[in-house]
Nucleic acid binder design. Sequence first.
DNA 1: ATGGTTTTGGTACTTTAGTATGAGCTTCGA
DNA 2: TCGAAGCTCATACTAAAGTACCAAAACCAT
Lengths: 138, 138
Amino acid sequence: MKKTIFVFSALIIALLFLFKLGKYAYFSGDISMEIGIAVIALVFFFIGIYINKKALQKKKPESPVVDIKKIEQLGISKREYEVLVEISKGLSNKEIAHTLFVSESTIKTHVSNLLVKLDAKRRTQAIQRAIDLQILSV
Amino acid sequence: MKKTIFVFSALIIALLFLFKLGKYAYFSGDISMEIGIAVIALVFFFIGIYINKKALQKKKPESPVVDIKKIEQLGISKREYEVLVEISKGLSNKEIAHTLFVSESTIKTHVSNLLVKLDAKRRTQAIQRAIDLQILSV
DNA sequence: ATGGTTTTGGTACTTTAGTATGAGCTTCGA
DNA sequence: TCGAAGCTCATACTAAAGTACCAAAACCAT
């Protein structure tokens, strides 16, 4: 909103400034005036391009973001989600156990729970499901 | 290139047309002329936005595409790649065997070869590697 | 404090996955 | 036509993955 106000203010100022130029050209004859108008047109043309580019740049960081609501809906706990992330990295249960400082048994329990909650038969399927559900950032 | 030429032609024509309007306003007094200039400016402002939007729309279908060169570089055969795709879908060796109409033994062989070529220890890791290498369309 | 959830861990077993090795068959280019 | 490469399949194991069941400690909110 502030951006919009700023942009319009800038446009008004630019317009007033160009009016001065226009009058200046006006006293210098007809041809100069046409050139002045051409300059005005071009300047605003590029302003339009610039504004638009800026606007689109901010839109870009869009949807590759993930999670939260669906994770909660599925009843996946924090710890389980951590395990899910490690699974998607291609780690084995033993490796996950090491990185999370717990026993492999614990990881197996988490994985089993995850498979149920994600309705998957294998960890590879769990990865796919998680990606589909936008629970994992690809 | 043709687009650019067309756009500039259109701009020149628009300019000439607006010059006519400018002259028209010119004979109607100062205020009208300033309004005319403002109109010109705004018109070109929006033309700029429009052109820019069009240009960016064509750029969009960008890089989510995949493969080929790297697949060849890694020495992955067609059949092996098919297996890789099925793996990434979360299928088991047995299921892949069914969908590709071969025995599970064959799939195991392909998987083993894939793991070597992708430098992975597990199929889940193979999936990650393949995604990193842009061999799989996420 | 008491009950529900989460996290942790274990045992015992079944099922997949993955490795190693060998071998027959097809295809395709030199 | 000869050989390399790819695809197929089998046997025999080892190693992960997953299931089932149980249970103690930790955490959190009423």
